[in-house]
Amino acid sequence: MKGRLIAVERLGEGAVAAALLVDGRLEDLLIDPPEADPLPRPEALHWARVERLVAVAGAAFARLGDGTTGWLRAPQARPGDMLCVQVARWPDPGKAPPLNERPVWKGRYALLTPGAPGANVARGIRGHAERARLQALADAGLAGAPDDLGLVIRTAAANADDAAIEGEIAELRAMFDADRAAMTGTAPKLLRPAPDAAARALRDWADPEPDAVEEGEDAFERLGVWDAIADLRRARVDLPGGGWMSVEATAAMIAVDVNTGEDFSKGAAQRVNLAACAELPRQLRLRGLGGVALIDFAPLPKGARQGVENALKRAFAEDPVDTTLAGWTPLGNFELTRKRERRPLREALRDG
């Protein structure tokens, strides 16, 4: 199966899953819990009431419109203040979700950014003529907007029709106006529910345009997605050439161990290390893992470290999740930290 394909499957009780396959290989995965699950969901927009301050951390806990509580960095907040907040990511088990006091209204082609004024075009869009065209659309899209409202044209807008981009910006503006008008009163309320996995997939995986979208009760089974998910339940990841690595998450960190397997030939360690570098972003993405990761590469001399580090940089440059490569530890391991924006697969599968 060649090309890019998005598969969407309804898992029952309102749970939704979406998978991105490229040439038949699973490249990304989103799984939402059942509708009855009270877990706050990323991108949900709330009119929230500050209830408690933690001065030492410069943080505040706020009551959301669904009755749950989230926290945000708000050193100037006071109990009773009403704020427009957006759930930033899935909460860690037993913890309140982090909130963003600067919500973003996100579409396929554009973003509205209150508090960050100006019309901008994503850096990834190339070509003077194309950037000029999109800049003109962005400028027109902000006509008559509040002074503090900003707009960003996303990379997916490259070569898209003017009418499609203009239409989406108009929809985002209408959503923003409606939500802003609802920011009244002293009772917490849900202003806008979070998009489900299917909506996020069709929005965020649209660049480049998928060749097909398949939906149905057996879409995952037919396309081999459940088989790929079964592999993700195991720590071991087989690599080209006979080597392998283990990827295991603990409460404190992600531990990655790279092994040459039965290959003891000259250069085996470097080959498996480079293969691990290429595969690691995909494994972390599909497993929904974030936080600190420590990689124990197969034994390599110090002179070979730069080649491995360069391979890691290339691999993570293409990954959509923000990752910072911290470098080598005194014991010769490599450390990185990754934004916790995904829900760990082991938690999602308990719901799905």
Rank of each mutant, 00 (worst) to 15 (best):
L331T: 14
A276I: 11
F334G: 02
L331V: 14
G303P: 08
L284Q: 00
P301Y: 08
R282M: 09
P281Q: 04
Q270R: 01
A278D: 07
R271S: 10
R285S: 04
T329P: 09
A298S: 15
P301T: 09
L300P: 07
R271D: 03
T323Q: 03
W328M: 09
Q283A: 06
T260S: 15
L294T: 14
R342N: 12
T323G: 01
G291V: 14
A311H: 06
D322G: 02
F334L: 09
V292S: 05
R342L: 12
K302E: 14
L284E: 04
S265I: 02
A298W: 11
R285I: 14
A298L: 03
A315E: 08
W328K: 03
K313W: 10
I295F: 06
Q283D: 10
A304P: 06
G288L: 06
L286K: 08
A326Q: 02
P281T: 06
E318Y: 08
E335G: 03
W328N: 00
E279S: 12
A275M: 11
R314W: 07
L284C: 02
G288M: 03
G288D: 03
E262M: 01
F297Q: 06
G288Q: 01
A268C: 06
K266I: 09
V308L: 11
A304T: 05
G261D: 00
K313C: 00
L312R: 05
A317G: 09
P330V: 08
V308G: 05
V321S: 05
I295N: 05
A278P: 04
A275F: 13
G267C: 01
V308Q: 05
K302N: 10
L280V: 10
L336H: 08
A276N: 05
L280F: 11
T260I: 00
V272R: 00
D319R: 00
D296K: 06
A304Y: 02
R338S: 01
T323M: 04
V272W: 07
G290H: 00
G261C: 02
L312S: 01
C277I: 03
A326G: 00
G327N: 08
I295R: 05
G290L: 06
L300G: 06
R340E: 07
L300S: 08
L312Y: 01
L300A: 14
L300V: 10
T337G: 02
L300F: 01
A269C: 15
A293V: 15
D319I: 06
E262G: 01
L325C: 06
K313M: 11
D322K: 08
N273P: 11
R338T: 12
K302G: 15
A298T: 04
L325S: 03
E279W: 04
E335R: 14
P299S: 12
A317I: 11
L284G: 08
F264P: 00
E262I: 02
E262T: 09
F264R: 09
F334C: 01
N333R: 09
V272Q: 03
L325Q: 00
G290P: 13
D263Y: 08
A278C: 04
G261P: 07
S265W: 03
R305D: 07
L312M: 15
D263T: 10
K266A: 07
K266M: 10
F316A: 06
G303A: 15
Q306T: 14
L294V: 15
E341S: 14
E341F: 10
T323V: 08
F297A: 03
E335P: 00
A311W: 04
E318F: 09
G261M: 10
D263I: 11
F334V: 09
G291M: 12
L331K: 02
F334E: 01
A317R: 13
E262S: 11
